[in-house]
Amino acid sequence: MPRRLTASVLLGHYLSAFTALGVPLFLPRILADLGSAVPTWSIGALYVLPTLCTALAAPLWGRLADRHGCRLSLLRAHAGLAAGFLLAGFSPNLAVFALALVVQGTFGGAMAASNAYLATQLQGEGLSRALNLTQYSARLAMLSGPVLVGLLADAGLGIELYRYLAWLPLLAFALVLPLPADAPRPRRHPAGTPGATELPADLLRLLAVQFLFSFAMVVTFPYFMPYGEALGLNDDALIGLLYSLPHLVYLLALPWVQRLGGPLLPAGLVLLALGNLLQFLRLPAELLFALRLLAGLGMLLAFVGLHRCLAERRRAGGAGRLFGWFDASGKWAGTAAGLVAGLACQRYGVAMPFLIACLAALAALAVTYPLLTRSPETAP
């Protein structure tokens, strides 16, 4: 049953992630279907609106999941995403479309909900591997979603894309519905007491590593195309391949890397920092392929190590609250990284985000070492 349960949760997560990650790239074209002039600045605001709403809502959903069950929260996440996409697909104007994005972000959040539910069914190394696989499904959706949705857009579909894609999280809902419910976690502290909302210092440190690591990854995303062009690359397909290489490393190498022992998290952060530093130095374009592979290996090692730390600390608190805060820290990092990347490129050029990513990875490395004293990574 655990293997079938994990497969159902992961497939459901992929369907919802495909839905959420496939459309944003085509947002400018979709907004044109609303029939009114859309300010250029609003495209960026609408792009991050669901992420912001997820960051704000995830801790609340986590507490409710511990109180009422993580499976129920996972069903809510899939249904919330479907509702947001249906509303977007039938939006008559920009205001309703923005409301639909708020619904999508506020009531979605399949990553945190999937991880929390898996944490109620699995333990130790089994949970760590499952967390690696939810990231695997997210990376797979990040690569396949824009390509397949792009084919639909090329066929002439605009805002109605949202109506068709809404069926995918509904299918994910159907996959999760027959799975066993988890027992709600009893509250240890009365509402209003300090212990009801405080997180242990050890978990706060873990959230700080997650924030810095996520920031280091995302800050280089928005302006990678002009960075490649500045190196003399004029082939959009080649730039797209180089952009995707770190995610391809995760997809191809995860089965082997997760079998490794040792301190993977600090090793990954060191490689990520080195890869970004070398990209900041604008080495010849012929070396960019190797540098992207290096950064991808660092990302993979850091993810696997971080998930081991997270699985170990699952026993320190309710799964819903833990994964709610963990997901929220990543979403806040992504939002901040997008803003910082824009400001840095405007003032210092398109290579500056790579130096910022290097510094963020080194900061995460500095925060990491106390986490390893109780981590399975340090076990012989």
Rank of each mutant, 00 (worst) to 15 (best):
335 T>G: 11
39 P>T: 10
326 F>R: 07
87 L>W: 05
237 A>P: 00
23 V>W: 02
346 Q>D: 15
95 A>H: 15
273 A>N: 04
102 V>T: 08
379 A>P: 05
10 L>G: 09
312 E>H: 10
358 C>Q: 02
328 A>K: 05
230 A>Y: 00
313 R>C: 13
99 L>D: 04
92 P>T: 08
140 L>P: 02
347 R>W: 15
78 H>N: 13
47 Y>C: 03
23 V>H: 03
359 L>F: 07
334 G>L: 03
206 L>V: 13
185 R>L: 12
339 L>F: 14
300 L>Y: 06
1 M>S: 14
92 P>Y: 06
186 P>S: 10
127 L>M: 03
78 H>E: 11
221 F>D: 01
285 A>N: 10
369 Y>Q: 13
216 A>P: 01
254 L>I: 07
3 R>H: 12
161 L>F: 02
68 H>A: 11
201 A>G: 07
92 P>G: 13
337 A>G: 07
311 A>E: 03
6 T>N: 05
329 S>V: 13
309 C>I: 08
319 A>K: 01
157 L>Y: 09
194 P>R: 14
318 G>A: 09
236 D>R: 12
273 A>C: 04
105 G>L: 06
279 Q>G: 00
212 L>Q: 08
149 V>I: 15
220 T>L: 06
290 A>V: 12
13 H>Q: 09
380 P>E: 13
13 H>V: 05
216 A>Q: 03
333 A>M: 07
